[in-house]
Design a protein around this nucleic acid. Structure first.
Length: 304
DNA sequence: AAGTTGATCAACCGCCTGAGA
DNA sequence: GTCTCAGGCGGTTGATCAACT
């Protein structure tokens, strides 16, 4: 029968969003709430398809999104959840409310896959060379394969300078905290995407976690034992904050949660829309650094 | 300085699912 | 029960930038 395209391809703009488009979209959603994406281009005059609008909102403009470096805590969560759930990024993202599925997916593909592969290679080599059941910590304490294990690339990504943060002049980076600027004047919508995901995924994933256990997609027992769910789900996040770092017994240069605590200390700013618009249009945008910190309780608030 | 390569990430594409007619 | 449609998801692409030669 043939499937009609999600939107009329003629006259549809593609490519990066401009600050003006962002403002239009944000203003519209502020007024009408997220949802009914089909109506967004029609009502706003945006030359974007509904999917593009939804994606832009959910991935970049939605309040509560944290961008930039992943913390060791988040890193460990992603590794764990990926082992448990596979490449179900939306489900994984539901456990990291500040992060989008797209962000997590990208981070996995560009950082974590390499790390794990590297680690597994080192582990395999070690197992072959020793032919023993030594634990990972034994391996690390023996200083095995320092080139591989202590390679700077293997350290937590939070220690690596991010190009994203090094290039504040690009518009993409200047939008990374739009959502935070919007906090306070955006009312949470009961029909919000995140809320829906939270509900459906939680029920689904709790089942997954309960029924499938830790063996769903883990191919290496050693890695599985290394990244035990019990460890990550314990109260002491600091202890398990960085999978790799803790395994490698590297010093924790950035205690988990420090960023959030700092955010609390500084309090939340709620700039008016005019300020936001000005800032959106100001590519320099360095003036709003003070707004960049997140509140500590953001994790407990899935949809701001 | 110029060209090349690799890494990163925003955005798109196509498929799937669920709701409503 | 069937069809249509909107929304959601995961995989992939392409632009951009930094590092390297």
């Amino acid at each position: 029968m043939g499937r009609s395209p999600c939107c009329d391809k003629i006259g549809i703009k593609k490519g990066p969003w401009t600050p003006e488009e962002d403002i239009i979209l944000v203003s519209y959603i502020q007024e009408h709430g997220p949802g009914n994406w089909r109506a967004v281009p029609a009502n706003t005059g945006l030359l974007r398809c509904s999917k593009s609008c939804r994606l832009r909102w959910t991935n970049y403009l939605r309040p509560g999104i944290k961008r930039g470096n992943f913390t060791p805590h988040e890193e460990g969560m992603i590794i764990h959840l990926q082992a448990l759930l596979g490449n179900r990024w939306a489900a994984i993202a539901s456990y990291l409310p500040q992060r989008t599925d797209n962000d997590i997916k990208n981070y996995w593909n560009t950082h974590l896959k390499k790390k794990i592969k590297k680690y597994q290679t080192a582990l395999d080599n070690y197992m072959i060379s020793t032919d023993s059941g030594s634990s990972c910590h034994d391996m690390m304490s023996k200083g095995y394969d320092k080139d591989a294990i202590q390679n700077p690339d293997f350290s937590g990504s939070h220690l690596q300078p991010s190009r994203y943060h090094q290039s504040p002049s690009t518009y993409a980076s200047s939008t990374d905290n739009i959502s935070r600027l919007l906090e306070g004047w955006m009312r949470p919508s009961p029909k919000s995407t995140q809320g829906k995901n939270q509900r459906s995924n939680n029920s689904e994933d709790s089942e997954s976690l309960g029924d499938r256990g830790c063996c769903a997609a883990v191919t290496k027992e050693d890695l599985d034992s290394l990244i035990s769910f019990e460890n990550l789900s314990s109260i002491s996040w600091e202890k398990s904050s960085s999978l790799v770092d803790s395994v490698l017994q590297r010093p924790q240069l950035e205690p988990a949660g420090s960023e959030a605590k700092q955010g609390v200390a500084e309090g939340q700013q709620q700039p008016p829309l005019s300020f936001l618009e000005k800032w959106l249009l100001d590519e320099a945008s360095g003036q709003v650094d003070g707004f960049m910190e997140l509140p500590a309780d953001c994790c407990s608030n899935p949809m701001l």
